[in-house]
Amino acid sequence: MNELWALMTGLAPLSLMAVGGGTTVLADMHRLIVEQHGWMDDAAFARRYALAQAAPGPNILVVGLFGWHVAGPLGVIGATLAMCGPAFLLALGFAAMRRRLEGARWLRVAERGLVPMAIGLAAASALHLGGAAVAAWGPQPIVGAAIMVVTAAVVFFTKRSPLWMLAGGAVLGVLLIG
């Protein structure tokens, strides 16, 4: 119980520091979990991060895996609440304020102005993840790159659900490098 409390009080401040996405504070989580408390080693930490990336859902759910390791099912809930709660309340306050200011000219300008940066950052995450994913294909990087390009084209040109592309990627992976 004390361990869970230590995890939660360690994660809560990170919630509000995670500007630009939950996993920008990954290094701080590593410090808390591996270096400070020794709850798991480097490899176990990295494996959990890779799993959260691969599993469905927001990547921030990796804290749930850390919570599981420290305190079981209750740890999952505690860690997720600690990591998401403070940011949730702040965003909720902002969302309420935004609706009261609805139509204010400066807000419309600001919202439109943040779009290019948002898209640039999203494209960069795609390429970061893509680089790691293609490297994971080992001797056949071209197949990994092809899956990436074809999926991007399907999303860009059609309204189809890309779930089939992801499933196809998994099958190709098992057949070719499994």
């Binding site: 795609a126 294909w137 990994g144 899956i147 990627g169």
Partner: peptide
Amino acid sequence: AGVAAGAAGMMLG
């Protein structure tokens, strides 16, 4: 690895 390549493509698209 296959899913990750598809996911990256999806984000890019």
